Simulated assay, not measured.
Amino acid sequence: MQRVALDWAVLEASGSAVLVGIATMLQFGPLLVFGLLGGAVVDRFSRRSLLVLTQGIASALSVVLGILHLSGAATLPVLLVASAARGLLTVVDNPARHAIVGDLVGRDLMPAAISLNASVFQLGRLIGPVLSGAAIASIGAGWSFVANGVACALMVIGLLRSRPDEMFEEPRSASDDGIGQGLATVRAIPLVGWTIMLVGIVSVSALNLPVLLTSLARESPGTGALDYGLFTTLCAVGALIGAVLLAHRPFVSFTRVVGAAAVLGVVQTLLALPDQLVTAACLVGVGFFGQTFLTSSNAFVQRSVPSATRGRVMALYLMLLLGGQALGGPLAGLVVEHLGLRQAIAASGLAALTAALATAMVVRSGRGPVVSEDTGPRSAVER
């Protein structure tokens, strides 16, 4: 709700789509620049305490922004400063929210918990923009900020009510070498490195649907805006189905990660076919296999690394995931403009498929050292 309301508020205050893009950059840019440093902080201190702090600050920022907007005092500089403040919080908040999953449920239940979290996230993608749009139209965008402030406060209450003595936290070490230890962990567990590399490549090549879908909607015979909403909904439905099914079948492996990336590439390549029924089916498939790939890769990486460096490894994972999407969007736009829409869609799918097959071949040939694919209770380092 807040993302939609903030974009709308910036657009109203400035009338500039460029400034809307700048506001988005301010929300995600700090994580790309300082992500590894944030991961080191997450591994040094209690993740529960860090999240209480970051979510508490986020709650206060949202409520204050909501009050300012409702009172008419939320000028463009205020909105941009709020965007930058949220972006700085994500440097610690994002890796902490990923890494704390294992602390809360333990290594065995981690894949199911990550899938459950993904299903809730997809529900938010479906419901949040609708609620925010209704709020903007009826009572004003400021109430979306207030609603998000309440949501963050509820997370703080939940964290405070959790019992640290029942969590699966491992002792923090003050003697490691900060950021370097996270990179050393990735080098020591080759399949984790290959997985994170594949996530980065697929993010650049295939996870750029907003650019492709807007162009596809513009070419469709119906109403462009309505078609874009329908396309996005079909993807979200597929992603929700994938997340729910993975929550019931939580086993993860490197093979599943690579397989999901390969099938995603095939389905996205077929999306280039000019047939409405094929387009609808492929959009659901892209959502399903895209979510399967991201959830499986997330769970595989987290279960394969020791808790002491999980925050730094997940920070690197998120940097490549978000950085890849940031790079992939403009790249996809250039391909659409110079080669055509259908060619751009096919190229994005083929690139993901090629990356998956190449990764599998390199690992199987022995040039990429392999550890066991089994993600049992012990970490790959411990095995």
Rank of each mutant, 00 (worst) to 15 (best):
Asn148Ser: 12
Val204Glu: 05
Leu209Ile: 03
Trp194His: 09
Glu169Tyr: 07
Pro164Cys: 01
Leu198Lys: 07
Gly142Ser: 10
Ile201Asn: 09
Ser162His: 10
Arg163Phe: 02
Ser205Leu: 08
Leu198Gln: 11
Arg125Pro: 05
Ala147Arg: 07
Val146Thr: 15
Ile196Ser: 14
Ile127Thr: 13
Ser205Cys: 14
Leu213Met: 04
Pro210Ile: 00
Leu213Ser: 13
Pro190Trp: 03
Met167Tyr: 03
Arg218Trp: 01
Ala188Asp: 15
Glu169Arg: 14
Gly193Lys: 08
Asp165Ala: 14
Ala137Phe: 00
Leu213Pro: 06
Thr214Asp: 01
Ser205Trp: 02
Glu170Pro: 02
Val150Met: 04
Val156Thr: 13
Leu154Gly: 08
Glu169Val: 15
Met167Lys: 04
Leu159Ile: 03
Leu159His: 10
Phe145Val: 15
Trp143Asn: 11
Ala206Ile: 00
Asn148Tyr: 03
Ala135Gly: 09
Glu166Arg: 15
Ala153Asn: 07
Asp176Ser: 14
Ala134Cys: 07
Ala151Arg: 06
Ile196Leu: 04
Gln181Tyr: 01
Met197Lys: 07
Ala134Glu: 01
Ile201Tyr: 09
Ala206Leu: 04
Thr214Phe: 00
Leu131Lys: 00
Val202Asn: 13
Ala174Cys: 02
Arg218Ile: 07
Ile179Tyr: 02
Arg161Met: 07
Ala217Pro: 12
Ala135Asn: 09
Ser175Met: 05
Ala134Pro: 02
Arg187Asp: 13
Arg218Gly: 12
Ser215Arg: 15
Ala184Glu: 11
Val202Met: 10
Leu160Trp: 00
Trp143Tyr: 14
Val150Gln: 03
Leu209Asn: 15
Ser175Phe: 08
Asn148Leu: 04
Ala137Gln: 12
Pro164Lys: 03
Ala174Phe: 09
Ser215Phe: 01
Val211Cys: 06
Thr195Gln: 00
Ser144Val: 01
Gly149His: 03
Pro221Gly: 08
Arg172Asp: 02
Ala174Ser: 13
Ala135Leu: 15
Leu212Trp: 02
Leu126His: 14
Phe145Lys: 13
Asn148Gly: 11
Val156Pro: 07
Ile201His: 12
Ser205Met: 12
Gly200Ala: 02
Gly182His: 04
Thr195Ser: 15
Leu209His: 14
Leu212Met: 12
Glu166Trp: 01
Asn148Met: 04
Gln181Leu: 05
Gly158Cys: 03
Pro129Glu: 06
Gly180Pro: 00
Ala217Lys: 14
Trp143Arg: 08
Gly193Leu: 01
Ala174Lys: 09
Pro210Asp: 02
Ile136Ala: 10
Ala153His: 05
Cys152Tyr: 09
Ile157Val: 11
Ser220Asp: 10
Met155Leu: 12
